Amino acid sequence: MTIARTDLLGLPVEVAPRLLGAELRTVVDGVRTALRITEVEAYHGRGTGDLPDPGSHARMGPTARNATMWGEPGHLYVYLSHGIHSCINVVCGPEGTAGGVLLRAGEIVAGVDAAAHRRGVATPLSRIALRDLARGPGRLGQALGLRHALHDGIDFVTGDEQNGARARLLWGEPVADVSAGPRVGVAGIAGTDAYPWRFWITGDPTVSPFRWGRGAREAAATL
């Protein structure tokens, strides 16, 4: 069943764990792929929720870069990381507030060869290569074929085409065992247990390893 806009009206930290096990399907330039979501992170914009989020792109308010985060839920916010990686977020919360759930990792369940080709990985895939195909947000975006800025704002509820791509997000089987902890690679206090806004399917091999962000380890020592 397709995830509806009304399913995404809660705070990102509430929506994020519910997206585990969901399936994101893309058709890019006629090539189909699908991914089962295994790891996510929640991000709140300015004025969203009771706790300000210093790790969010929208922490200072609306900008040209984060405009999609302030729009209606049911779109994908696709941003560029380190100038090369297209990272995918599910926009949630009422229109006019900023909220996003970063898709950190997943299992490619359809279109494995196409995803490998996009990633530049030789086939047939080894067990490790298959595990790593969408392990981490940059790899995930590349495997699914969605690119900044061509596909930023793509609507997965209507499934309308945008620059040669379509996307759909569907509910999956309920996940029984979910873990939570600090976000990966986020700087300062926002990357500590003060913000346990990373959620993953416990024990899933595709989940990315934790690493501290700049100054986060030091900030954690003061908690």
Rank of each mutant, 00 (worst) to 15 (best):
P12T: 00
A34R: 07
L51P: 02
A219H: 14
L144G: 07
L169A: 10
R119V: 00
W197I: 10
T48P: 05
G120P: 03
R25Q: 12
N66G: 09
F156H: 08
G159E: 02
G99N: 05
H151M: 04
W171D: 07
G185Q: 10
G49P: 03
S81A: 14
H117I: 11
G55M: 00
R211E: 13
L140Y: 03
N66S: 07
L144F: 03
D132L: 09
E161T: 09
G45N: 01
R119Q: 04
G145Y: 06
V31L: 11
G136S: 06
L133V: 02
R127W: 12
R5F: 01
P94V: 06
A64M: 12
A16E: 01
G145L: 09
I3R: 06
A165H: 10
L9D: 00
L76E: 00
G10W: 01
T6E: 15
D7S: 05
W212G: 11
N66V: 03
A194W: 10
D53F: 09
I108C: 06
A115S: 11
L20E: 01
S86R: 01
I37M: 04
I154S: 09
A167I: 05
L51C: 11
G181C: 11
V90P: 06
A143T: 03
R183T: 13
T206G: 07
P73S: 01
C92W: 04
L80S: 11
A42D: 05
R183I: 12
D152N: 15
I189H: 08
V175N: 09
R147N: 11
G45W: 04
L150N: 13
G185D: 08
D53V: 09
A110W: 07
R104T: 05
A134M: 01
V13G: 00
N163G: 09
S208Q: 13
G138P: 03
F210L: 12
R25P: 00
D7E: 08
A219S: 15
G10F: 00
V175F: 11
M69Q: 13
P54I: 02
H148P: 04
H148K: 09
P12F: 00
R131D: 03
T202I: 05
V101K: 02
R214S: 15
D53N: 08
H117F: 13
G74V: 09
S56A: 14
W70L: 07
L144Y: 07
R214P: 14
A4Y: 09
